[in-house]
Simulated scan of single mutants.
Amino acid sequence: MRLTVAQANDLAIAAMRAIGYAQDEAFATADHLVDAALRGVTFGSLPRILAIAERFEKTGDRRTGLKIVRETPVSALLDGGDHVGYFVARRATEIAIEKAKQSGMSMVGAFNTWYTGLFAYYMEMATREGLVAFAAGNGPAIVAPEGATEARLGTNPIAFGFPALDDPVIWDIGTCAIMHGELLLHQRLGEPLPEGVAIDIKGEPTRDPAAALAGAIKAWGGHKGSGLSIVVQLLGAMCGGPVISPGMSDMAYFVLVMDPELLIGDGTFPERAAELSASIRSARPEPGRPGVRMPFDRSAAERRRRMAEGEIDVPDIVHSGLMHLVDRGRL
């Protein structure tokens, strides 16, 4: 299904409103998910609203007020009140940016939230302000540490963002072989998983999404990725929630924002980042490859292309599910 960007945004807001979200929370979620679609990250876009609705059906509405529970001039800790992470992490990042502008650097944590989405979105919020940022988020045990056949870690995304003269340099990864949202989309579409990304409950390799959900996702990058995932889990634990989240709830988000002017003081950091980007892109590519890219190059190019076209792709089954939510909300 092809939708205009405006249609996709309106549908996302309507679906979020239909399942009980206020306008500001629906807007924040829709903006994040449509941006993911523009960047070509289908699993992190509109299908997530269906997962949000399914989570509500399982747990009911447990939301309380989003509030700051601890604060200093350079830090804050938020109780997310069981609000969806697209809203909580956006607010946490806004606070971190405000504090970094005042004090040069800041760190903000949030707990009692879930489904935080693509961390590149939050990194870009900071880079637009000329700031450097780092974020990490932990979650429930659905990833097996290297060498294990049982889940003990979250998908545990980690991201860095640096302002540059053109596109920012943003590196955003999950420390797992496949993201949970991507696994859910494979299940929703009835498609097998790629080889080597998951194991079943007995520890055997599987391409069946349902078997993987009962078993575990594998860590990305062997022992190195597994170690990085452990670091992310501990950064999340620093935010005051559980060390390992109890299912799809009470996850943590941590963001550190820095003004490069604290160190160099001459306003040249974006030029320095652009210099490195130009150097890497000019490197001789391997045979058969079109060229060397910087992190976020593909995302930025895809977003420009789709914005110029004015349309995005939404899987038919996802579109039908969203329309069902909207229609059900009208009853």
Rank of each mutant, 00 (worst) to 15 (best):
D10T: 15
A14M: 07
A18S: 13
A18K: 00
D24Q: 10
E25N: 03
E25Q: 06
A26T: 05
T29I: 10
V34E: 00
A37K: 06
R39S: 06
G40C: 12
L50A: 01
A53H: 10
E54Q: 12
T59S: 11
L66W: 12
I68V: 09
I68E: 06
V69F: 07
P73L: 10
V74G: 06
S75H: 14
L78I: 15
L78S: 03
G80N: 12
H83D: 01
G85V: 04
Y86W: 15
F87N: 04
A89Q: 04
R90T: 13
T93A: 09
I95H: 12
A96Q: 05
I97S: 05
K99R: 09
M105H: 08
V108R: 06
F111N: 15
N112S: 08
A120L: 05
Y122M: 07
M125A: 01
F134E: 01
A136V: 09
G137W: 11
I142N: 04
P145A: 14
G147V: 06
T149V: 11
N156L: 01
A164I: 03
A164K: 00
L165I: 12
V169E: 03
I170C: 07
W171S: 15
D172T: 02
G174Y: 04
C176G: 10
H180I: 07
H186D: 00
P194Y: 08
G196H: 06
I201Y: 07
E204H: 10
R207H: 07
D208G: 01
P209C: 04
A212K: 07
L213T: 13
G215H: 05
A216T: 02
W220E: 00
S226V: 11
S229Q: 11
Q233P: 00
M238Q: 12
C239D: 04
C239Q: 02
G241Q: 05
M251V: 14
A252P: 12
Y253I: 04
F254K: 00
F254L: 03
L256G: 01
L256W: 08
D259G: 02
I264G: 14
G265Y: 04
P270Y: 15
L276S: 08
S279H: 15
I280E: 00
P287D: 08
P290M: 04
M294A: 06
A301K: 01
R303K: 14
M307W: 04
A308N: 09
E309W: 06
E311W: 07
P315K: 03
I317G: 03
I317A: 13
G329M: 02
R330L: 11
